[in-house]
């Protein structure tokens, strides 16, 4: 189980690195699709079918939006010379990474090993969802009943984003 997941995650890392270095923007987007669709397989292996369904829909919509934007503009990747500013950026990125590695090492010692999670808050949900909400699917029961306000906020964000996209694409800009 852990080996399969490691292979998939390695595959995702290779796809991500290729997406960042591709010379053609269209192939960069397809390589980002590798990461998204591998995530679907990971969710299925981790016994999360709801997440897999949502992720495959979301990934397809994202790819369609990105391909539409690329076909409407340009596919050329910029030519970046290694100048002073680029060196500053790369060293800044390395510093950020080192800081994050430091905190990650501290955080990972507090986590349980993979596969030995203990239920804390969710144990109440697991016991009571069927009786209290009448839903056979625990994830749906939590999402729409115990944490209904979260879902309301999510719907608000989605609505606001749709309004924002419509507003941005409709108005005429000043030349």
């Amino acid at each position: 189980m852990e080996l399969t997941l490691s292979i998939l995650l390695g595959f995702m890392i290779i796809g991500a690195i290729f997406a960042l270095h591709a010379k053609d923007l269209l192939s960069a987007i397809i390589a980002a699709g590798i990461v998204g669709y591998s995530l679907v397989i990971c969710f299925l292996l981790l016994k999360a079918p709801d997440l897999a369904i949502v992720q495959i829909v979301v990934e397809t919509i994202t790819l369609i939006i990105m391909v539409a934007v690329i076909l409407d503009s340009t596919r050329e990747e910029l030519k970046v010379k290694i100048d002073r500013r680029q060196i500053i950026n790369i060293s800044l990125a390395l510093v950020f990474m080192l800081v994050l590695v430091f905190f990650f090492i501290q955080a990972i010692s507090n986590l349980n090993p993979f596969g030995e999670h203990t239920l804390r808050m969710a144990s109440a949900y697991v016991g009571e969802t069927a009786a209290k909400t009448g839903s056979a699917n625990l994830v749906t029961g939590i999402l729409f009943d115990f944490r209904g306000y979260d879902t309301l906020g999510e719907a608000t964000i989605l609505f606001t984003a749709a309004l924002g996209v419509l507003t941005i694409l409709r108005i005429k800009g000043r030349k």
Partner: peptide, 25 residues
């Protein structure tokens, strides 16, 4: 398996879609 992280991630995936669509626009 723990259903609580799955419910939270489900919310986060949809918000990620909203962010990406806004950025592309």
């Amino acid at each position: 398996v723990d259903p609580l992280p799955q419910a939270m991630v489900l919310t986060a995936i949809v918000i990620g879609l909203a962010t990406t669509a806004m950025l592309m626009a």
